[in-house]
Nucleic acid binder design. Structure first.
Length: 121
DNA sequence: TTTCTCACA
DNA sequence: TGTGAGAA
């Protein structure tokens, strides 16, 4: 199928599909006129890509999934690299949450301090 | 309709 | 991580 049909079948813009290809996430054969041609299983792959990217994974993360991304049923696939990616992502999120929590505590303390000063006037 | 590139959020 | 515009 051509890029327009893949876009329609996946609900993903042609622009995004070209972007995924540029990033090495999606490949296509070329027609004589240079138009991209996709096999029907590209639909599952794109839907998986979309879901993973929307869930906060980066292009590099999705890259690490290897052939798993092409799976028609990603959730039921015992994808070893996916486990590593998810675990690393969880660690990163935990670190970010800790940092934000720290910042929030500091800001709350400053706020209370300032309020007390102002109300003491 | 599709291709590409540049610029931008 | 995408998108818009412009030209072929």
């Amino acid at each position: 199928m051509k890029i327009g049909e893949l876009a329609r079948r996946t609900g993903v813009s042609t622009r995004s599909l070209r972007y995924y290809e540029q990033r090495g996430l999606l490949t296509a054969r070329r027609d004589h006129n240079g138009y991209r041609r996709y096999s029907t299983d590209a639909v599952d792959l794109v839907l998986n890509l979309r879901r993973l990217l929307k869930s906060g994974l980066s292009v590099a993360d999705v890259h690490r999934f290897g052939s798993c991304v092409a799976s028609p049923d990603l959730d039921s696939t015992p994808c070893v690299p996916a486990l590593a990616v998810y675990e690393q992502r969880l660690r990163t999120l935990d670190e970010q949450i800790a940092t934000l929590t720290h910042l929030r505590h500091n800001l709350a303390a400053h706020t209370e301090h300032l309020r007390a000063r102002i109300e003491a006037e």
